[in-house]
Simulated assay, not measured.
Amino acid sequence: MKQQFEAAIKTLPQNDVQQLAIWLQSYINDSWDQQLESDLQSGKLDNLISKAEADIAAHNLRNLDEFIRNT
Rank of each mutant, 00 (worst) to 15 (best):
residue 40 L to Q: 03
residue 13 P to F: 04
residue 17 V to W: 05
residue 2 K to S: 08
residue 17 V to D: 02
residue 10 K to M: 09
residue 48 L to F: 05
residue 10 K to E: 10
residue 51 K to P: 02
residue 51 K to E: 00
residue 8 A to R: 04
residue 65 D to T: 15
residue 22 I to M: 13
residue 31 S to Y: 11
residue 66 E to G: 12
residue 40 L to F: 05
residue 65 D to Q: 14
residue 56 I to P: 06
residue 32 W to P: 10
residue 16 D to E: 09
residue 39 D to C: 05
residue 58 A to R: 01
residue 41 Q to L: 10
residue 66 E to W: 14
residue 48 L to V: 01
residue 7 A to T: 06
residue 41 Q to T: 10
residue 28 I to Y: 08
residue 12 L to V: 02
residue 3 Q to C: 05
residue 19 Q to Y: 08
residue 6 E to W: 09
residue 34 Q to K: 12
residue 29 N to M: 13
residue 67 F to N: 14
residue 35 Q to E: 12
residue 60 N to V: 01
residue 25 Q to Y: 12
residue 54 A to C: 00
residue 25 Q to V: 11
residue 27 Y to G: 10
residue 53 E to W: 00
residue 10 K to S: 07
residue 34 Q to S: 13
residue 9 I to H: 05
residue 54 A to M: 03
residue 66 E to C: 15
residue 13 P to A: 04
residue 54 A to I: 01
residue 68 I to H: 11
residue 62 R to P: 02
residue 11 T to G: 03
residue 23 W to L: 11
residue 46 D to Q: 03
residue 52 A to D: 04
residue 5 F to S: 03
residue 13 P to W: 02
residue 21 A to W: 09
residue 50 S to F: 00
residue 25 Q to N: 13
residue 7 A to N: 06
residue 26 S to G: 13
residue 46 D to V: 07
residue 39 D to I: 01
residue 41 Q to G: 09
residue 52 A to P: 01
residue 61 L to D: 01
residue 41 Q to S: 10
residue 36 L to P: 04
residue 35 Q to H: 10
residue 38 S to V: 07
residue 62 R to S: 14
residue 30 D to N: 14
residue 21 A to F: 10
residue 24 L to S: 09
residue 66 E to R: 14
